[in-house]
Amino acid sequence: MLSILMIEDDLELAEILSEFLEKHDVKVTNYDEPYTGMSALATHTYDLLLLDLTLPNLDGLEVCKRVAKQKNIPIIISSARSDLDDKVKALEYGADDYIPKPYDPQELLARIHSLLRRYNKKDAKNDQKDKDSIFRIDKESRDVYFKDKKIDLTRAEYEILTLLISKKGHVFSREAIAIESESINPESSNKSIDVIIGRLRAKIEDDPKKPQYIISVRGVGYKLEA
């Protein structure tokens, strides 16, 4: 049975959807408050997030943005907000689909299965890539493995290394690294980035002074070769 987290403050709609989906082997856990829903997502495993946008205490767009950064989970926006800007922002922030209210629950069920099929295919491809790589990222636990051995990383080291891994061979400038890393001040000096790169090399390179994996590109930045 599929397990879905729903964050929806319209309790009548939540009950209707939950009853319908459970008849089709989809278990729904609903929270009408976004912070409570995000806490549940941090401690439990779900196959998909169904998210309303108009929520108390925190707008659904911000919820979408935060969840997409922290979790690799399919997200469907279910909202009565029809503004094009909301739809565009939701998709830019990490949503995979946007279904405007009102809708037939059968359409929602079809979208759920369609989205999960796409995710399963993508995960299968990623698994194959991981097998071919000496680096492996566990996004749930935020751990990185090098040659099947877990690397002890600070938050900044994790963010920089996973960024380099995400686009192997791509050269990232120091400025781009600072911008993409949440725990690093974008105004940080180049030297602070170099220090973190040095620490990473010490943890994965046989000879940090002659790196094989994290390569310096003179006058530009760094790239990962692996």
Rank of each mutant, 00 (worst) to 15 (best):
D206A: 10
I137Y: 07
P74I: 00
L49S: 02
Y158D: 13
S188M: 04
M6K: 05
K65C: 06
K147W: 04
D130S: 12
K129E: 09
F135N: 07
V67R: 00
E92N: 15
D10H: 03
D206Q: 09
K101V: 11
V144W: 02
E62P: 03
R81V: 09
D152E: 15
Q128E: 14
D152Q: 13
K23V: 11
L49D: 03
Y46G: 07
E12Q: 12
Y145K: 11
S78N: 14
A95R: 00
D127I: 12
R117F: 12
R218Y: 14
L21P: 06
E182P: 08
A156M: 11
I165S: 05
P100C: 05
H170V: 15
I165H: 05
I73Q: 13
A176K: 14
I7W: 04
D143V: 09
Y35V: 13
I196C: 00
L53T: 01
Y35M: 10
P211D: 10
L2Y: 15
I76S: 03
I77S: 04
E15Q: 11
L11N: 14
L2Q: 02
K203T: 05
A68G: 03
S181D: 08
K121I: 15
I134R: 11
N120L: 12
K27G: 06
V88I: 15
S183Q: 10
P208W: 03
K87E: 11
Y98M: 06
L61C: 04
Q70R: 09
K121T: 14
F172E: 01
E62H: 06
K89E: 08
P211V: 05
L49Y: 02
L53D: 02
L164F: 02
S173T: 15
L49P: 01
M6Q: 11
K122G: 01
G219Q: 09
D59H: 14
E107S: 08
S133P: 00
T45P: 03
N72K: 14
D130I: 10
A68M: 09
L13N: 05
G37M: 07
I7K: 01
R218C: 12
K223S: 10
E187C: 03
E225W: 07
E187M: 09
S189Y: 00
R199E: 15
I196D: 03
S133M: 01
A14Q: 07
L50S: 12
I204A: 05
A90H: 03
D10G: 02
E205F: 08
F146W: 05
V195C: 06
S188V: 06
L116T: 04
K149N: 13
G37K: 04
I151M: 12
R81G: 02
I75G: 00
I99E: 06
V217P: 04
L2V: 11
G219I: 09
Y98E: 07
R66G: 10
K27P: 00
E159P: 05
G37Y: 05
N190R: 11
G169D: 10
E157D: 04
I184S: 01
V67M: 00
I215T: 07
D47V: 06
L84E: 14
I16D: 09
Y93K: 07
Y103N: 12
L13C: 09
D206S: 12
K69V: 11
T45W: 03
Y93A: 13
G60Y: 02
E92Y: 08
K210T: 15
N72H: 13
D96R: 12
F135L: 08
I137H: 01
D86V: 07
T154C: 02
S166H: 03
E159Y: 05
